[in-house]
Design a protein around this nucleic acid. Structure first.
Length: 308
DNA sequence: ACATTATGAACAC
DNA sequence: TGTTCCTAATGTG
């Protein structure tokens, strides 16, 4: 349930605690036994996210590709380095390295493991892959894709994706023009195009609904009828929301909250969004009940009054 | 105990 | 457009 921000956070965690260290790779569940055997004992040389794709090259030249699908998640155990601003904690010498268990999937959850627990922790449930160093364990469960690719195959995966604002951070302007071109060339509803990973990478059902509300745009508007400057504003807004999501580990899409409201919304999912999941509840702006409809087999939430 | 649901996407017609 | 796959949490009886 991971939209793009989750996968970027996972890539950063792996970069901190896995990359550069020889790994024991296994498949406790057994469904990735062959791939695990190929990677076992090797070293991951990088971990990167493009959209919702996680791509991890190894020193053997092979690339591990993981896609979490609807409900995949990684659990991290042991010396889990803190992510600050979605990246390495800075400053403090020897920031506390508490042994922790962190789940990065739907919502992020964390608990501090007590001392004296078994190490390594026994796999719980259906663990497709376990990546283990002496001090850190990463367990992957429920992915829709987990496979070993050649570098060419990995490049082909990236080539099929539209721009990701993080991946194209140095080139936001050109990337934005690409998105404008891809949206305005088509008669498909803009709500469907925002979810199309070949148009723009990393947006899922929550960010889709929220971006369109924030733009006060009717999701059913054909792409070619959306003015270029409106598409461009959607792209810029996506870049900002993604950066926030990577920093916070939470999808918080309301810009109307003060500091206290933000803090409350970070804790309570019912406060995080304008329209997503709020069927029948009053629009936070105009009070009209939020509607849900099917769009290309996914649920689309919108305010029929604000979004025109 | 069982059914339902989910932040996704590939595939078959 | 509908079916299928992967897993676990939540809701219902």
């Amino acid at each position: 349930m991971p939209e793009g921000h989750t996968v970027h956070r996972i890539a950063r965690q792996l970069a901190l605690d896995v990359v550069g260290r020889p790994l024991a790779v296994s498949s406790p569940q057994g469904r990735f036994a062959d791939g695990a055997a190929r990677l076992d004992g090797r070293t991951m040389t990088a971990a990167s996210a493009v959209g919702k794709q996680l791509l991890c090259p190894f020193d053997s030249g092979e690339v591990l590709r993981v896609h979490l699908g609807l409900y995949g998640a990684w659990d991290f155990h042991g010396d889990v380095s803190p992510l600050v601003d979605g990246d390495r904690a800075r400053g403090s010498l020897g920031a506390p390295r508490v042994r922790r268990a962190v789940r990065m999937g739907e919502d992020e959850s964390e608990r501090t493991a007590g001392d004296g627990l078994a190490w390594p922790p026994p796999p719980v449930g259906a663990v497709r892959v376990r990546l283990a160093t002496d001090a850190f364990v990463a367990d992957l469960r429920g992915p829709s894709a987990c496979e070993v690719l050649t570098p060419d195959e990995a490049a082909a995966v990236r080539d099929r994706l539209g721009p990701d604002p993080v991946d194209r951070a140095g080139d936001l302007d050109a990337a934005g023009r690409e998105v404008v071109d891809r949206v305005t060339a088509r008669g498909v509803p803009v709500g469907q195009l925002l979810m199309d990973q070949a148009v723009v990478a990393g947006i899922g059902n929550i960010y889709r609904a929220e971006l369109l509300f924030r733009a006060r745009l009717d999701p059913w508007t054909p792409g070619r009828r959306v003015p270029a400057e409106v598409v461009r504003a959607l792209w810029d807004d996506w870049a900002g929301l993604l950066a926030d999501g990577i920093r916070d580990g939470v999808m918080l899409t309301r810009e109307d909250l003060d500091a206290d409201g933000r803090a409350a919304a970070l804790r309570d999912r019912d406060l995080r969004h304008w329209v997503y999941g709020r069927t029948g509840l009053p629009c936070r702006v105009c009070g009209t009940p939020v509607v849900v409809e099917d769009m290309a087999a996914r649920k689309l939430y919108r305010c029929p009054t604000c979004q025109v």
